[in-house]
Design a protein around this nucleic acid. Sequence first.
DNA 1: TTGTATGCGTTATCAA
DNA 2: TTGATAACGCATACAA
Lengths: 362, 362
Amino acid sequence: MHPFKKITIKDVAREAGCGIATASRVLNKSGPASAEVRERVEMAARELGFSFSSIGRALQGGRSMTIGCLVPSLANPVFAEAVQGAQEALRGTGYQLLISSSNYDGDADNKAIMTLLAKEIDGLIVTMVAPESSEALKKARQRGVPVSLMFHDAVEGFPTVHVDNFEAAREVARRFFDLGHRNTAFLSLRFSSSDRSRNRYAGFHAECRDRGLPDPALIELSETEANTPEVLAEILASLDGLTAVFASNDFLAIAVQKAARLMGKSVPRDLSVVGFDGIEIGRLLDVPLATVETAPESMGRQAALTVLDLMQGKAAVQAPPLPFHFRAGATLARPRMKSRDDDQVAPWPPSVPSIKTKLKQG
Amino acid sequence: MHPFKKITIKDVAREAGCGIATASRVLNKSGPASAEVRERVEMAARELGFSFSSIGRALQGGRSMTIGCLVPSLANPVFAEAVQGAQEALRGTGYQLLISSSNYDGDADNKAIMTLLAKEIDGLIVTMVAPESSEALKKARQRGVPVSLMFHDAVEGFPTVHVDNFEAAREVARRFFDLGHRNTAFLSLRFSSSDRSRNRYAGFHAECRDRGLPDPALIELSETEANTPEVLAEILASLDGLTAVFASNDFLAIAVQKAARLMGKSVPRDLSVVGFDGIEIGRLLDVPLATVETAPESMGRQAALTVLDLMQGKAAVQAPPLPFHFRAGATLARPRMKSRDDDQVAPWPPSVPSIKTKLKQG
DNA sequence: TTGTATGCGTTATCAA
DNA sequence: TTGATAACGCATACAA
């Protein structure tokens, strides 16, 4: 006999002295069975430590009771929380999450989805680099697998759960403007591979235009640059007249604070900073961070509920964007006027050139 | 005809005009096939958009190519990073992670493992409330499913990937002592449901004893208390003569800084703070956090590699704990002496009572 | 109320 | 080199 023989329903049936159909009916409470045989079957199952194989079930039933979930990285707390939210929404439903991450790589995204699809997932929750042009996503649709996007703005044919990045960014620009800021910058990681960053910049840029402000400087940082305040300080120092920075996420915003300290500049007296996401820790800083609060956990939860609905045959309806909330913080204030002359609106300096100009739109 | 008919290898075989065994051999490159039929099969597969069903494969092959992973919560970046690390170690191996989280609930832990087991996972990576007494974990062993724990100190029979919490905490106590701190406190969330916190306290406590210091005060916070600096400030204020706090994680340590500010106390002049985990953001604070650096991502990676090894039949060997590293930071300094008299060692005040005394050991 | 037989998608065996 | 068939664990139609 083998050391780790699997206990199947056959074993239970044999032990209980009945047919497997009967055993199945008893254990699933899915059909009639005499009290007596029921007793025997349950006893046998208990004694043998039997539990159903989801695989056998999936093969027979056509449903794997598994939902695929793809995010760029779990190391980013925003996505981690979203997954956690989805997880919680699924608790008790019998569905499990099969998770993949692509490390912000578009090819990996598509491969991951194909792998997920091969596992016969019953639904799919996705945040990826380029959903609008993903073959794998199309394939999912072909196969009739319900899909919900997360964080992305609407993509044709797929429901998405998101905040309106464009509008939120406009709001930030408006706040800057109202306080009297004129020369601003937008800071981002992986600008080119994140439609979220791009949309935030676009909204920020649009509002600046509408207000007649110079275009914001666009700064794209590498991971290492973002973690080296010295480098960041140098970059910021190169931008003449800069008084306000909108960072595409709170970590970057905190890095800016650090860099400012290094430059001997005071936040918010010399430089205002606003972040995005609204991570808890921002509140606990010496100078609490002004930021746009979103709710990643709700986003994941909503996405899961959407997929659940879709699986039950409900029609796909695109819900409106989740609300965002501007969190006031001590990192945002009026810019300091350099001299009396500045009481009148300062002449706008020429738009500061982007450090890296990978920007395609806007 | 049905809208979403699944394409199986049968369809491919029919389309290619050959038997399914042949199609299987071609597509898997697992056996001989004439160039001609190979051509036809590959063509057919492409045209139909065929891909193998992992479920069929799993049923037949006895392996699901899936590894279960249970963590308390993905909202805790330490665990999220660990999962990310495991994810990365698995990339390219064909294995996928089936993830569950229990929200620090011991019952949920066991249920989750049973569910994972039912999915016929080929391996299991676990961080849970009480591994030492988990029936589900025993079950996994019975079934011959390779298991690796993460973060836990050694538990009989299961390999684990961890840092030595006890020793790390001793190190912190030593640092405090060397600088002249006498009255200390240990701060923790969910003390009772985390062996990590308990072991850290135990080590901290043991070293204090060894040095002849009064027992550290043990403070267990609820989630809300930790996020309400006012409350935390009040608690800290109630501890007379306190000069140093060891927080069981960096978030708590940052909360302590905030609370200190509220109390009008200066860190580190009036109060030293040391955290645990070594999250990146700690470096970026105004007063960079002193902490014990660990490497959650490596932990996840190691755990995954361990499971992979186990699955290949290698014997379970308990690797030594991963190294930790004390990160110096500006939150740690000598305590301020209150008066001349204090130049001599101050008389030890009576040990401050625990705010909550759920402590079982030590 | 019960049990037998079939099929789900795949791979492995074995005879042709 | 090929293909029919058994087996994997389960649920169910159907016959008893």
